[in-house]
């Protein structure tokens, strides 16, 4: 039973990272925006869900843990989506690197505000979040992860998804073909924030204690790393990237030296991927596939 105690929390973490990476991929990969403040939405989801289960409905949570869990993570997602709207409306007038830096700013502001809000424990953190549904929790995480991936996939297969992609491809052309660029940028941003918040909701219940330092700039960078490694603009890439970035530190555990330099390794990976394989793993895969096809033809 011992290895399960290690494995299950790890898989839960993996699922949350998969949702995070897939959600950032909607913004950065599909819509071509460059957001690096994703930790902020993750934080809002976590705090809102935690407040939901501990402050708003502790009795309900005790009586109906499954329903309460769903309600709480949805509160987290909705709160983050709303924050995405509030951040997105002004920020999305900016382009490229200006947008990047503005999202960093918002991410940090969210963290600093949480650090100063007494109602959620300020700098002491937010303890005592009950692990709703107990041993069933991993299944709920898995279900929502699969659900998130499915809905994002469906979204991108629809006309709305094509509108989002067209913005990445050529904003001016998209506009002239009747796409309301401002609206769909905001929409993609809100969708990304929503799913980041969902992930945050699970994270709060998974950790049972959250602190503003769980949501610093490094977290945003790690999520960015996931989609860079996997290949931006590909859902499969986001999943692969999340798996690698989550499991690599575990694989390095056997050696204390390697374990202590894991962030250094991540930094190097980030540089080398962009230099040598800018389309990430999925780009590598496609290239492999394309040359194979060419050989057969």
């Amino acid at each position: 039973m011992n290895y399960l105690d290690y494995l299950i929390p790890l898989l839960q973490l993996l699922c949350m990272n998969v949702i995070l990476a897939a959600s950032l991929n909607v913004i950065n990969g599909y819509c071509g925006l460059f957001s690096i403040g994703h930790a902020g939405f993750f934080a809002i989801g976590a705090y809102a869900a935690a407040a939901g289960s501990k402050l708003l409905m502790p009795e309900f949570a005790a009586a109906q843990p499954a329903l309460a869990l769903i309600a709480c993570v949805m509160i987290g997602a909705a709160a983050a989506g709303l924050a995405g709207l509030v951040v997105g409306i002004p920020c999305l007038r900016l382009t490229g690197d200006y947008l990047a830096i503005a999202t960093v700013g918002f991410g940090e502001i969210i963290r600093i505000v949480l650090l100063n809000t007494e109602a959620v424990g300020a700098s002491r953190g937010f303890p005592g979040i009950v692990l709703l549904t107990g041993k069933w929790f991993p299944l709920w995480v898995l279900l929502f992860t699969v659900g998130s991936l499915y809905f994002i996939h469906r979204l991108m297969r629809s006309s709305t998804g094509r509108a989002i992609l067209s913005i990445r491809e050529d904003e001016i052309a998209a506009r002239s073909m009747g796409i309301n660029v401002r609206f769909y940028k905001t929409f993609a941003f809100v969708v990304g924030a929503f799913f980041a918040g969902l992930s945050g909701g699970f994270f709060a219940h998974h950790s049972q204690f959250i602190h503003p330092s769980n949501f610093n700039f490094m977290i945003s960078v790690m999520v960015l790393l996931m989609i860079v490694v996997g290949g931006m603009g590909s859902q499969m890439g986001a999943v692969l990237g999340a798996i690698i970035v989550t499991l690599l530190p575990e694989a390095l555990r056997f050696s204390e030296t390697l374990s202590s330099i894991r962030m250094l390794i991540f930094g190097l990976i980030m540089i080398l991927v962009v230099l040598w394989q800018p389309q990430g793993l999925m780009g590598f895969y496609r290239k492999l596939f394309a040359t194979r096809k060419a050989e057969h033809a």
């Binding site: 629809s158 006309s159 709305t160 509108a163 067209s166 998209a174 009747g178």
Partner: peptide, 11 residues
């Protein structure tokens, strides 16, 4: 993409 306006279905 150009036909987006006349998609005629909801999200």
């Amino acid at each position: 993409v150009s036909l987006h306006r006349e998609r005629g279905y909801s999200l």
